[in-house]
Design a protein around this nucleic acid. Structure first.
Lengths: 129, 129
DNA sequence: CACCTGTTATAATAAAGTTAGAACAGATTG
DNA sequence: CAATCTGTTCTAACTTTATTATAACAGGTG
């Protein structure tokens, strides 16, 4: 599992973990229906507590990105082919809004911001041109 | 001052404040060289502690968005006409990356993501088309 | 000189994050 | 079937962060 945790970061460990898992799923490194490592084994791998990994998994489950099957394990949900739900769009907008505002204050224009977004998308999905 | 704080939010008050101040600056509602309200008066307005406002101001100062003049007050810095610094670009990328990954997992494609970014930019800067 | 400013210090409280250990019960496997 | 692995739940302790509360200090302003 290619995950790197920075214990001294101001970003909570479970958030770092959730973010990196999302990236692995977005890139296809973790594929649909693939089982995630057990909370215990991943915790041991990363040198963190079981409950911390558990919290990260439940964050992903709240977002409908993985499915936790009680007493069994967690598997990656399929990436929606029908596109995002309204609430998912709303959530993305809400998080992206202050980031866009910050970019503008830094002197970026529309072209620069979209260029960064585009390069990040390309970095994740090669088929997205 | 058109700021709305949600005390029950999981987002820290000082972050909510900093984000909304950034928006006000990005939209031009708060203009370059304009003085921000004193930490005491804004704290009284919002019904929060002086130190909480102070922390928000220092967050903005760390990002070079405002300038705090000791014993005097805080003023809005000019929006860079030469564009963002490398470290500012790096910071934006770092925050935007997991958000893009999440969007992709939700089933958004490049077009949809850029469309959301574009609408947010337009919502802040009318002159950006 | 009053008053407002940010600064600093101390303190107390509450909430969040992290770790720890144990026990339970369903699922899996040999 | 028995051993093991799984997520779940509970309690507990600890650390850090966030928030509020006072108070005092010193420069800026009118």
């Amino acid at each position: 599992m290619f995950i790197q945790i920075e214990p001294t970061s101001e970003i909570p460990i479970y958030t770092q973990l959730a973010n990196q898992l999302i990236e692995l799923i977005a890139t296809g490194t973790l594929q649909t229906s693939e089982a995630l490592p057990s909370v215990r084994s991943l915790a041991a791998d990363l040198g963190v507590n079981m409950h911390t990994v558990n919290k990260a998994y439940h964050e992903l489950e709240k977002k409908n990105i993985i499915q936790i099957i009680p007493k069994s394990g967690a598997v990656v949900n399929e990436i929606s082919s029908t596109g995002p739900s309204d609430s998912q769009i709303e959530h993305i907008k809400q998080v992206m809004k202050p980031l866009i505002a910050e970019s503008i204050v830094y002197g970026m224009d529309k072209k620069q911001i979209l260029s960064i977004a585009t390069s990040l998308i390309s970095g994740i999905r090669r088929d997205e041109e």
